[in-house]
Design a protein around this nucleic acid. Sequence first.
DNA 1: CGGGCGTATAAACCTAGGTATGATTCAACG
DNA 2: CGTTGAATCATACCTAGGTTTATACGCCCG
Lengths: 219, 219
Amino acid sequence: MSESQHETCVCVIDDDEGVRQALDSLLRSAGFTVHCFETPEAFLAADESDGAGCLILDIRLRGANGLDFQQELLASDNAVPVILMTGYGDIPMTVRGMKAGAVNFLAKPFADDDMLAAVAEALARSAERRAASRRGDGLRSSYASLTPREREVMALVTAGLMNKQIAGRLGLSEITVKIHRGNLMRKMQAQSLADLVRMAEALGARETSAARYGATTGG
Amino acid sequence: MSESQHETCVCVIDDDEGVRQALDSLLRSAGFTVHCFETPEAFLAADESDGAGCLILDIRLRGANGLDFQQELLASDNAVPVILMTGYGDIPMTVRGMKAGAVNFLAKPFADDDMLAAVAEALARSAERRAASRRGDGLRSSYASLTPREREVMALVTAGLMNKQIAGRLGLSEITVKIHRGNLMRKMQAQSLADLVRMAEALGARETSAARYGATTGG
DNA sequence: CGGGCGTATAAACCTAGGTATGATTCAACG
DNA sequence: CGTTGAATCATACCTAGGTTTATACGCCCG
């Protein structure tokens, strides 16, 4: 599997064979890779969840509710952009779907161009999501390589404490803090303290953040 | 005008007198302050935009389109949470409204409880928005007090450059950079460099920082 | 025209950060 | 049982950051 394939892979879940074939034809002719499923279970079983760039989901499925399935996906870590469609939609359903993050909500029958525009938007959102995820992954793998002590020091360094304060807080000598600090800067590939602070922000590593503002510095 | 009043002030725009009275009655009995308007122009003229906690907006207005007005509000800096309602809604209208950030989209006639729940959600969103705005305002007013030179230095400091590099970049001596740096730290009320970096992030002052981590493998 | 402000700079002095080199303890792994 | 790696600390040395005091130039406002 190549890398850039993600951005053209579209999955379809609809219990109507005719709709599946129509979408397959439409999307293939637009240059997308298409995988069709009759049920959410089939989709999950195929484990396309990881490679799919977006999901076109029918709401009225035999034995299942597309909106419920959308929210299951949302609750799991699988945040693939979803385009909802239905032949029996109303406004409350639309509101619920959009609030749950759907890219679009199309009433059947829909215009081909509307679907293609929705898919383009969904794939753009997917690409952005993947890029952000990759960015975070690099950081997280660096962070994972830190020893527990280095993480403690990193938290206090990025909270703005001086080495001697960190030493006091952790019951260490200042020189030891310096060594941990140098090691973690190397492991995190941070070129500067400003870099490290931004990394910490991106990681959400705000464990120690309490008592920063308003805390007295002297003493 | 008191401060906490924002969180209970609800504005209604509907060209139907009966709807306005019904909503006024419902919302007042729920403890909210209500202001009703017949047209978007009347709403804007009353300048409730600043004190309103949320806006209940009809879509089919005489001589105006509520969805267009919603997007005008979005385009302006006035980001008051909007609840849309209509007696003649369809799915594309709902999608458009929700994509434009509406809190909810209610078809008339709606249940009182649905409206009250929507208002509660909108006001919660409004409170959060105001809190974030206040947080940013303190920073921005500090930042506004910086001289142009101090801002240049701040940008380079938060980008992770050393004083001597900044001096070279700006054609100054290192001592001058130190002075600007000290001055801006005081003006920004930053207790540490880490603090300042976070402030710069919050201010969106990212001129120099283009994609520092994540992709680069070697320096 | 004088005072305030922004900008720039220097000398002196102090604190904080960072890197070697070398050494010890302890626990885990083969 | 020896090695490896985390963690600890010391001495020494160097660089970077930061303040104080003082000087100087140009600009605008009263």
